[in-house]
Simulated assay, not measured.
Amino acid sequence: MQSIDGRRVLVVGASSGIGAAIARAVGAAGARPGLVARRRDRLDELAAQLPGAVVATGDVTDPASITAAVEAIVRELGGIDDVVLAAGVMALGSVGDTDPEVWRGVLDANVTGLLTTARAVLPHLGPGSTVVVISSMSGRRVASAAGGVYAATKHAAHAVAETLRLEVGPRGVRVTTVSPGFVATDLVAGQENAHAFEERMHDEGLDPADVAAGVVHVLGLPPSVVVVEYAVQSIRQLGYRN
């Protein structure tokens, strides 16, 4: 393992959940985080805990907004070495009962937003850089009808990561897909009929810090090594209890 001390790590989707945990973890490992999300108040609160962190607001569903945010971070940090693409949303509901506008929102954030953000960051990366795409184990399976549209976007995220690997791998940029199972976040908080699912996420899910530790591990691998996919889930999700 190599140290990531001093590396400039851009975290997109840093205001809460997995993204915020990753920002804390890379900061604790000595990296200088660049934090991007929509909610400036949360970014400022997080940055206050991370010496040397810089922030910019950006919305992955707005190409001009996210491109401007990336450029602002690049100016503040003097460049970026690694990128973690952690922005995403989840909406539960079967195909037959869900408003198509809800699908559009999930697709815009999780697929088009991922592509748009990747397009904004790639010009700033070179040999030895790493792109981490936060996907999900739902990118390899469909666990329920209610989660089918979300799973479709995560299948797409896997395809985007594989595409990026083909595109930038030849110039020495690594691309890793990190695929957690349930994570104890507020991803579905407040959604109608999602209370039982939210309870299960918090009861069985990984601590976001566990996912963040995996990201730090991936970033610290030698430049000659690429982890194609890092899949992780809580042992509680397998039915085991301490």
Rank of each mutant, 00 (worst) to 15 (best):
V12W: 09
G214S: 12
V226R: 15
A25N: 06
D97W: 06
A23L: 05
L85Y: 01
Q233N: 10
N110F: 00
T177K: 09
T61K: 08
D186F: 03
V83E: 00
G58A: 07
R141V: 13
G13C: 03
A28F: 11
H217W: 12
T130N: 11
A118V: 07
A213F: 02
N242L: 12
G58C: 09
V11M: 10
E45N: 08
D210I: 01
R40A: 15
G147L: 05
A31S: 10
H158E: 15
V211R: 07
A161S: 06
Q191D: 10
S135C: 02
R75C: 13
V36K: 06
A161I: 01
V55Q: 13
V106H: 02
S94H: 11
I22W: 05
D62L: 06
A120P: 03
T176V: 12
M201T: 10
P123E: 02
E199S: 12
D99H: 08
A37G: 06
G78R: 06
V70P: 13
D108P: 06
A143W: 06
L164P: 04
T117M: 03
E199P: 00
R40Q: 13
T163E: 09
L125R: 01
A23M: 09
G239T: 08
A194V: 11
M90E: 14
N110W: 00
V54D: 12
V95I: 14
N193C: 04
L238Q: 14
T57V: 13
R75A: 15
A48I: 07
T116F: 01
D108M: 09
L92A: 11
E204M: 10
L85M: 14
I73H: 04
D186C: 08
A25P: 02
Q2E: 15
E199V: 08
A47C: 10
R38M: 02
A118S: 13
R140T: 14
